[in-house]
Amino acid sequence: MNPVMKFIHKTGSPAYFYWLSGRMIPWLWAIFAVLTIWGMYQAFFVAPTDYQQGESYRIIYIHVPAAWMSMMIYILMAIFGAIGLIWRIRIAEIFAVSSAPIGAAFALIALITGSIWGKPTWGTYWVWDARLTSQLVLFFLYLGVMGLHSAIDEPRKAARAAALLALVGVVNLPIIHFSVDWWNTLHQGTTVKIGGGSKMPNSMLIPLLVMAIATKFYYGAALLTRARNRLLDQDRRRGWVAKKIKEDQL
């Protein structure tokens, strides 16, 4: 067996995963808290006002990280789902299913904050342009994955059905990302570009990137917490759970 598969199988062992994730979660929360406090301080007290939008642009520090996360989590959910479908690795199925509510929350945050930002800048809370509409579709895809999963009782069948829907929805991601280039939209084009050329000074950009990293730690902590619960729930009658209870390690 190659080392990658060996690693997957080892972390895929429920008892080991349960122990490892339990150790990781407090650290993930701590890093998230430190980064968020620093990032928010920079965002509100250090970053300069925007020449055009004034103070309202500060909504960017939650809006953009949330929008990025909603897309990144969807990609990860589809990848976990595909791994679950092809190799039938249970922990991947659990990760896919546990990602959905977190991704849905970020999609909703992006929609709400964008809407609140839209009023003072654009003059409207909502328009049906390609960017806003495709982001709304992403939110409903998350709800669809969660709904389909909860509609099927047998947990592994439910996870596979949800993974299939997640895979189908992947087609929406390039649409969201490129909508501002492909069509005339009210939403402006891309500001932050990977590999330089971002249309923002560093004093504004750095807090944004810090918040983007912070939300990744939030996802990690929230995902592992949910995955542990799900694993424990599915395995409540299995030996490793009884052993953990006996050792008082649960």
């Binding site: 300069p48 006002t49 055009q52």
Partner: peptide, 27 residues
């Protein structure tokens, strides 16, 4: 019936925008 403002993807502090304006360059 309705007018919406479309802002661009450019963000900068007002001082920088003023300085650009003074040197005769627009954003």
């Amino acid at each position: 019936d309705e007018v919406l403002a479309k802002h661009d993807e450019e963000y900068m502090p007002p001082e920088v925008a003023d300085a650009l304006e003074k040197t005769g360059h627009t954003v």
